[in-house]
Design a protein around this nucleic acid. Structure first.
Lengths: 243, 243
DNA sequence: TAGCAGTAATGGTCTAACCAATACCCTCAG
DNA sequence: CTGAGGGTATTGGTTAGACCATTACTGCTA
């Protein structure tokens, strides 16, 4: 008959209220929240409590906090980075290897190809061509980066015109970049061969040739996977080359 | 020559230190952190600062906080739920529909089937059979839940013996459950037809028949997808049935 | 006009205290 | 001897008020 009158933490209530405002579109990316002191008054709580709520929102990637005059809490555009970070964290905290993630990525990037081939517009293909061009010239000048490769793969995914798929592929590339960059394999990973495969992939997409696209992507990703595995556990690579 | 002496927030330093300890395995799931007051002394900071750090760790899903005597902060087992939550949040905060997520899920769950068929052990298959049995009897008694369906699909994914894949499929089912349960479509979604398809899928896996498995899963997921689309925007479903 | 110092707004941190929830222990009655 | 009850210590949750550090603007001065 008489239910509990308190519902856990006050800061949590504030967090939920903020989340709700964002979902409802009453708070949109770029908006500036009232200052901490204002929020105290409005919610009728102390500043510490407001600050804890803001910390949670910040950790959730929903707001960004800047200090100084004209500073404050700003609603951020939610991005796939958060999911990517979560994935990376899981990778480091659970028995999950870079190879595992690479395999998952292969499954996904191969699986979307039928959708890509079916739905890619002329604009998509033009963008992909441009990225290939950039990659080639960057290769010539020796300034090719993993980020450029990632951008290409993400652009391929976005050609499905499914934001969920695009975000997932983006999420995969975050941890991938991290684990590869720190392992100084950025440069040799992507040779002219890789760039050539990118080019061929775009062609296959343009010709709406699913099978060829799959074949190219399979080869392309398998070479990447081999590199990751080798980097993950060099002893295995040596074993293999020794046979 | 003289670099900055301060490096942003103190609480952030503490968070990083904790994260490091977890990565290094010096803190494992189940461990209890010292009390807030102890941490204050050890770090030489105030309780407010320690609490902000704990809030961030809690929001990141790394610790769980309990009040009362013998309470405190406990290191948690990182799970895929966090990623699922992130996905769900992105779904509500960006122009991303349940249909988009369902499509991504279809791509993924279909894509892993070759791996499942290749790697499923006898134990995997026995577990799957058990889940099918449970589902059938639950159906008879009218107690079938979405969670049971999710469990089956996750178990299929775990038969790839790739934790990354398992976690991703788990992540997909979180938001899916949420959006479906709240839409009161739990019961009619899974009829005897669905259960039968589960059964057939297990058979195909046992016979190492990739093509058949794909065919069954495609049909199975497409019916789910149709339900989601219909639920997402009933007007569309009406339109279609009106033609 | 350019540069610089002052100033106000804002987040970051600290202190000290009290409240609320919880588990343990000790006492006392049966 | 055993069970129930309350007391108590531990721990997180919250408050109030203060001070510091950073930052952008403003207006003065050379």
């Amino acid at each position: 008959m008489f239910g509990p009158v308190s519902v856990g933490r006050i800061s949590e209530v504030i967090v939920e209220q903020m989340r709700l405002l964002m979902r409802e579109g009453k708070l949109v990316p770029g908006d500036r929240l009232p200052s901490e002191r204002s929020l105290c008054e409005r919610f009728g709580v102390s500043r510490v409590t407001v600050r804890e709520a803001l910390r949670v929102l910040e950790a959730s990637g929903l707001v960004e906090i800047r200090v100084g005059a004209r500073g404050g809490s700003f609603v951020t555009q939610p991005s796939s980075e958060r999911i990517g970070e979560g994935l990376a964290e899981l990778m480091t905290l659970t028995p999950m290897t870079a190879g595992n993630v690479t395999e998952a990525r292969m499954v996904f990037e191969l699986g979307i190809l039928p959708l890509v081939v079916e739905r890619a517009t002329e604009e998509d293909i033009a963008d992909l061509r441009a990225l290939v061009e950039q990659g080639l010239s960057a290769l010539d000048s020796g300034s090719y980066t993993m980020a450029m490769s990632a951008a290409f793969h993400v652009r391929v995914a976005s050609s499905t015109h499914n934001p969920a798929i695009e975000m997932l592929v983006q999420s995969f590339h975050g941890p991938m970049l991290m684990s590869l960059q720190q392992a100084r394999v950025a440069a040799p990973l992507m040779g002219h061969l890789g760039a050539q495969e990118h080019f061929q992939l775009v062609e296959a997409i343009e010709q709406r040739d699913v099978d060829r696209a799959r074949a190219i992507m399979t080869r392309h990703l398998q070479r990447t996977a081999a590199r990751v595995a080798e980097d993950q556990d060099p002893s295995l690579a040596n074993l293999e080359s020794g046979h």
